[in-house]
C-alpha cells in the first residue's frame, strides 16, 4: 500500500488518476482502517486528505449557508459554537456515530462515501438539502448529497473524483431538523433504523418538510409521501399516523444480524413520529 499526503485537491485527483488497483481517500479513516484491518479492502493507494488547506474549516457564509471541510471531525462539529444551534439534527446525527474516540476522527464525507445505508449522518445531511462539490480530472461539479449513494458500499463518484466541500443551504426562519436512530444499546451500534426530519413552519403549521430514512432500504431514502403526510398539518396524531404509514410503505429492509424486516418496518414508523415531533418542537421555538 502506498500512502500519499497531497496538499491540494488537484494533486489528490492526479494521484487517484495515476494509481493502479484500489484507491481510497483518507478523511477520518474510521471506515478505511477497519476495512484494512478486517481484510475487506486493502487499498493499493491511500490518499490522505488532511494536509489540504481548508479541509478542517467550518464556515458560515454571509447568506447563512454553511461550508464544511472534508476532514472536519464529528467532535469539531459538535464543539462548533453555532453550527449545532442552526442544524441540531445534523450535528446530533454526526455525534451518534461511534464513540468519543471515533468522533475525534470520523467525518461527514467519510460517512457519505462509505455508502452504507445505515450511515447516521447521511439522512440528516440529505434532509438539509446539502450539496457536495466534486473534483475530478474533468473539473468540478456539484451534486446533491441525495445523488451520491447508489447502493450498499457504492457511490456515483468516479474513481478519480473526490469530494472537496459540503455546502449546507441557509437555515432560514421557523425551521429545524432532528435525527434519531434505533440501536439495541445506547451507544456503539450501527443504526437498525435511522430517521431525519427537516421542516419549516408558518405559525403552527408545517409548510416544508423532508423526511429521510436510513437502514430500511439498499440506500438511504428520502420519502416524499412522508413529507406530504405532515405538510399542512400541526403534526397532530392523525398526521403522525399518516407519516408513520408513509414511512413504513417506503421501507424495503432486509433481515440481518441487526434486525428483522418486520422490526425495521415497525420501528421506522415509530421513529419517524418521534423525530418529526422533535423537529416540530424545535422549529416552534426557533427564530
Amino acid at each position: 500500500m502506498k500512502y500519499h499526503k497531497p496538499t491540494s485537491f488537484k494533486e489528490a485527483v492526479a494521484l487517484a488518476e495515476g494509481a493502479e488497483g484500489v484507491t481510497r481517500f483518507l478523511a477520518g479513516g474510521t471506515d478505511v482502517l477497519v476495512q484494512l484491518r478486517l481484510d475487506i479492502v486493502t487499498p493499493d493507494t491511500l490518499v490522505d486528505m488532511k494536509a489540504i488547506a481548508g479541509v478542517k474549516d467550518i464556515t458560515r457564509n454571509e447568506d447563512g449557508s454553511w461550508d464544511i471541510g472534508v476532514a472536519v471531525s464529528g467532535a469539531e462539529m459538535t464543539e462548533h459554537p453555532t453550527l449545532g444551534k442552526e442544524w441540531p439534527g445534523l450535528v446530533e446525527a454526526m455525534d451518534l456515530i461511534g464513540s468519543t474516540q471515533v468522533q475525534g476522527r470520523a467525518t461527514l464525507v467519510g460517512n457519505l462515501c462509505n455508502g452504507s445505508p445505515a450511515a447516521d449522518s447521511v439522512p440528516a445531511l440529505m434532509a438539509t438539502g446539502a450539496v457536495v462539490t466534486v473534483e475530478g480530472k474533468n473539473g468540478t461539479r456539484q451534486l446533491a448529497v441525495a445523488d451520491v449513494p447508489t447502493g450498499p458500499g457504492k457511490t456515483s463518484l468516479a474513481a478519480h473524483e473526490v469530494i472537496t466541500n459540503i455546502h449546507i443551504p441557509p437555515r432560514g426562519q421557523n425551521a429545524a431538523d432532528a435525527y434519531e436512530r434505533f440501536i439495541p444499546r445506547t451507544e456503539m451500534d450501527i443504526a437498525v433504523v435511522g430517521c431525519a426530519v427537516n421542516l419549516r413552519l408558518d405559525g403552527d403549521k408545517i409548510v416544508e418538510a423532508t423526511v429521510v430514512m436510513g437502514a430500511v432500504a439498499p440506500t438511504i431514502r428520502i420519502v416524499p409521501d412522508a413529507a406530504k403526510a405532515i405538510i399542512g398539518t400541526t403534526l397532530d396524531d392523525a398526521a403522525k399516523d399518516k407519516l408513520a404509514e408513509a414511512v413504513r410503505a417506503a421501507c424495503q429492509p432486509i433481515d440481518d444480524k441487526r434486525g428483522t424486516i418486520e422490526f425495521r418496518v415497525h420501528v421506522a414508523g415509530v421513529l419517524a413520529k418521534r423525530v418529526a415531533q422533535t423537529a416540530y418542537d424545535r422549529a416552534r421555538t426557533a427564530h
Binding site: 456503539m188 451500534d189 444480524k257
Partner: peptide, 15 residues
C-alpha cells in the same frame, strides 16, 4: 455473522 465488538454487543458504560 457478528465477529467484531460492533455487532457482538457487550454492555457499554452508558447502558
Amino acid at each position: 455473522q457478528n465477529t467484531v465488538f460492533l455487532d457482538y454487543r457487550v454492555p457499554v458504560a452508558s447502558d
